[in-house]
Design a protein around this nucleic acid. Structure first.
Lengths: 134, 134
DNA sequence: GTCTCTGCAAAGTTTTTGCATGCAA
DNA sequence: TTGCATGCAAAAACTTTGCAGAGAC
């Protein structure tokens, strides 16, 4: 799957990738759009969507579709996991968490040729636990 | 989180739950709607969405938001994992796959109170690998 | 009888797409 | 120059919501 599916290195594409890598917030497409717009005021949301899709297919970024209705994107493509708060929806990295999944080589499963895996924990974040008024 | 957030056991709610449990296909809301409509022709898609949300909050079903733009639902709530084909989008269960995550008790991580986790593998399904014309 | 839940339809949100133009190679 | 990629705007796709009436308890 990783293989270039685009031909030109446009400024838009570069800035989208740079800003996504710089942010550590797993932004949605619109959040990233707002960020990118500070450098390229004329860019359109459609272009952001198109490029995120291409960059994801090329394996340069990760599309995190498991955190709610709106997709989130991650510029960090090395293996790492996430925790999501079921109350406020906040999503953050789990640094240095080790599982046997990382050590085990899994090439096939159920007849599928396995390319990778995603692991997400869910629970209640410190902030939401403190304000247990809700 | 599991705790009844609804008061009445309507026929709609029951049929939605029954059909979701019967299907093993991880249907989308509309797919389930079509199924349920065979038994309750007058039901509306809005009702399906409302009930899936309530049943998910009550812990009776699982909402799988990680398989594409459209959410999918699973009537099986016991711990099990999924494989998704990156080519055709097909999503299926991984039966009897064992990880240390299942054996390890994880109560907290990054300050979060951990309620559970989701694990999804992705790769290429047998069908899509055979037809490598694409 | 009360009050939650439904059906319907409209609105909201997120994502995709058509087309003329711009720009990287 | 060539044709891929962009900006714009409209459309599509998915989900939520307001309201009057129906039905569970």
């Amino acid at each position: 799957m990783p293989g270039l599916n685009y031909r030109r290195n446009t400024q838009q594409r570069q800035v989208i990738l740079e800003e996504l890598r710089r942010l550590r917030t797993h932004p949605t497409a619109s959040e990233l759009y707002e960020q990118v717009r500070q450098r390229l005021p004329k860019i359109s949301l459609g272009t952001v969507y198109r490029n995120l899709e291409l960059l994801n297919q090329a394996g340069l970024i990760r599309k995190l579709e498991f955190s709610g209705a709106e997709a989130r994107f991650d510029g960090e493509v090395t293996d790492h996991y996430h925790v999501r708060c079921t109350v406020c929806g906040r999503l953050q990295d789990v640094p240095e968490f080790d599982t046997d999944l990382r050590r085990r080589q899994i090439d096939s499963l159920c007849g599928f040729e396995i390319l990778g895996h995603r692991l997400e924990f869910f629970g209640i974040c410190p902030g939401c636990r403190d304000s247990t008024g809700s």
